[in-house]
Design a protein around this nucleic acid. Structure first.
Lengths: 171, 171
DNA sequence: TCTTGACCTCAACTTAGCTTGAGATTGCAT
DNA sequence: ATGCAATCTCAAGCTAAGTTGAGGTCAAGA
């Protein structure tokens, strides 16, 4: 992966951390700019920088301080997007990615392992929603709206990860 | 199951500013302080003030500028808490409450009407989660992680109301 | 060489649902 | 009359997941 020899004259575009050599031709095959990554993934440039800040991406830099991403980072960003859709926060996603050896991007096996644990979380959510719905059905006929009696208002049930409410009480 | 004496709809809001001199027994029967409301509902005093700011509560004031709530506001706050648990945002709850005639606190019929529409939203969430879970199951065997191909990554499905993700893309 | 578009950093702003703190009043009991 | 807890307002801070803008640099084509 690293240490290829190139014979091009322009030094200005060298990627620092990968080692010296020449630039454009082969480098352009391996590396993409932030704009290209943005176009390929549909994620705004500002969001990509934000992901880097949060530790989800670790691009290389050219001698001119511009970011250069691996092509496989497209897949890494896809992973982030899908995991977000499944309800994971960026910090949770970062933990999953951090466990990959060598900072590698997710492979099939990784994805299977992660998505299985996601499946369990989704199942939990569905169970909770079903229970809540059943209680709501009973509550429709009741209408008590009493915090002491209403089975809907139960501190132990957190509806979804993002369920709002007064923090001191529900959290 | 639950009690049914929730319609003290007679104690409407004909009360103006509460006079200073006699904080008499009668007033103390009808009105409660913010601290009492906090204790009865478990909602922090700061949160109650916040709800007022958002238009969900409209307490009276003493001549000394302290808030005085109706006893029935306990039920109004209960309603807010339960609706939040069901995933409604404060602005949506405010709309529901604003539709009550005379700024009345929720009655049985109101609650039934609102909770039925909530039930539909919950059903929608459950359907979406089930679909997502099924797609995830297929994805476990696939591992493609391709934005073009993966059926999991579908802009039209928003998982839950709070599903994060790059705004420009998913919204 | 010049120009232009892509890129850089850093700071501030956004929404939601609050909490925390400062500094001033109020209200009730002794 | 005094003391003290409860209350008041207003401002700032918090988390999440970014966006927006100012001001400056880089890279590539004409």
């Amino acid at each position: 992966m690293c240490g290829k020899n190139f014979t091009d004259s322009g030094d200005a575009n060298q990627i620092l951390r990968v080692g010296a050599g020449r630039t454009s031709g082969l480098l352009m095959e391996r590396f993409i700019t932030i704009g290209q990554l943005s176009k390929r993934t549909g994620v705004a440039v500002s969001a990509i920088r934000f992901y880097e800040e949060k530790g989800l991406l670790a691009p290389l830099r050219t001698s001119g301080n511009q970011r250069r991403f691996l092509r496989s980072d497209i897949r890494r960003v896809s992973f982030i997007l899908i995991a977000q859709k499944l309800g994971l926060g960026l910090s949770e996603i970062e933990k999953q990615l951090a466990e990959l050896p060598d900072g590698r991007n997710p492979s099939l096996a990784d994805w299977q392992k992660i998505s299985r644990s996601m499946r369990e979380e989704i199942d939990d959510k569905i169970r909770l929603l079903n229970r809540t719905r059943n209680q709501l059905d009973q509550c429709i006929g009741c209408g008590c709206l009493s915090l002491e009696k209403c089975r809907l208002y139960n501190k132990d049930d957190k509806l979804g990860l993002k369920g709002p409410g007064p923090r001191a009480v529900l959290d």
